[in-house]
């Protein structure tokens, strides 16, 4: 410990010598893993992937530039187009449903109910499970021969048709059901925290004025919770772009290519098909998608927000 050179000690010991580098030396040494991660992996890795997405790399990364060829091939590939379409459907519906269901559950939980902890525990436990477990459970529940479809048919409704995992036109909704089961608990928790942050006086005031509860929620409370909604939106959205394990577990992208998603496309081309260039181009497209979501939010949050305050 005596060997530690802190900034001020250095200055005192050698008053004449500049001490820029050795100032806070311990802190700098301790931060080396963070600097390496930030610069090499996050910054360097991202730039590397973007750079190599313009090359014709196949089995090994090679710096042979081919311009936008990989992107042209990507956007001509039926599997990529299906992936993008699935991501769009999955994204829009999971945003809407998880927000609506999450908020409604939170509003119900906020009615000063009994057993609040029990209910919260029940709504949130799927979030502790991995996507693999979630996908496999729902694969079993949606099994056409033994699952929900067969149970309803056995109850007498023989025409009942609910077989999303083997019907390529609706398979993405089967995945959506599982994703909502897993993720709405989190949204509920975030929303509940937001609702608890609303001043109790707002409720008193609206009661005095005789405003019905649903109107208070819709026109007073929800606008007040805007920051919570925005944060939740960003969290859900960045999770949506990454959806991978759930699809692998539940359908493996099938039937055919009907439930493929971009993250799976990237993995398959990078590590299975050994077509690195396609993998890099696809992952760069994922990066752009995230940027489209994040940049406006970060702009509003960190520059616009400060000005308003």
């Amino acid at each position: 410990m005596t060997g530690q050179v802190t900034g001020r000690a250095t200055v005192r010991a050698h008053p004449g010598r500049p001490s820029r580098l050795t100032r806070n030396l311990s802190a700098k040494i301790a931060s080396i893993p963070m600097m390496l991660t930030a610069v090499v992996v996050f910054l360097g890795g991202t730039l590397w992937t973007v750079l190599y997405s313009f090359t014709s790399s196949k089995l090994l990364p090679r710096l042979k530039f081919v311009g936008l060829d990989q992107y042209e091939r990507l956007w001509a590939a039926p599997r990529w187009l299906v992936s993008i379409e699935n991501l769009a459907i999955y994204g829009v519906f999971s945003l809407i449903f998880s927000m609506v269901i999450g908020f409604m559950l939170a509003a119900l939980m906020d009615q000063k109910i009994r057993f609040e902890n029990t209910f919260r525990t029940i709504f949130l436990y799927p979030f502790a499970l991995s996507f693999i477990v979630t996908g496999l459970v729902w694969q079993w529940l949606l099994n056409p021969e033994h699952g929900i479809q067969s149970v309803v048919r056995a109850m007498g409704w023989t025409g009942f048709d609910f077989n999303p995992l083997y019907d390529s036109s609706i398979v993405i909704y089967g995945i959506l059901i599982a994703a909502l089961w897993q993720g709405t608990g989190l949204v509920m928790c975030l929303m509940l925290a937001g609702l608890r942050g609303i001043d109790e006086d707002i409720w008193k005031a609206s009661r005095v004025d005789g405003i019905p509860m649903w109107k208070t929620y819709l026109f007073v409370v929800i606008p007040m919770m805007r920051p919570v909604f925005v944060t939740t939106l960003v969290i859900i959205a960045s999770g949506i772009v990454r959806v991978y394990d759930l699809v692998v577990a539940q359908t493996s992208g099938g039937p055919g290519i009907a439930s493929e998603v971009p993250a799976k496309y990237v993995y398959d081309y990078m590590f299975q098909a050994q077509n690195l260039g396609q993998g890099f181009a696809a992952s760069t497209m994922m990066l752009i998608t995230v940027a489209i979501i994040i940049v406006p939010w970060a702009y509003l949050e960190f520059s616009g927000g400060r000005k308003r305050v």
Binding site: T46, R242, A263, S283
Partner: peptide, 16 residues
């Protein structure tokens, strides 16, 4: 960089 990096899809950084 670290915080912004948290939002980058893992797929982008896997191969490097």
């Amino acid at each position: 960089i670290l915080i912004v990096g948290a939002f980058i899809p893992y797929q982008v950084m896997l191969y490097p």
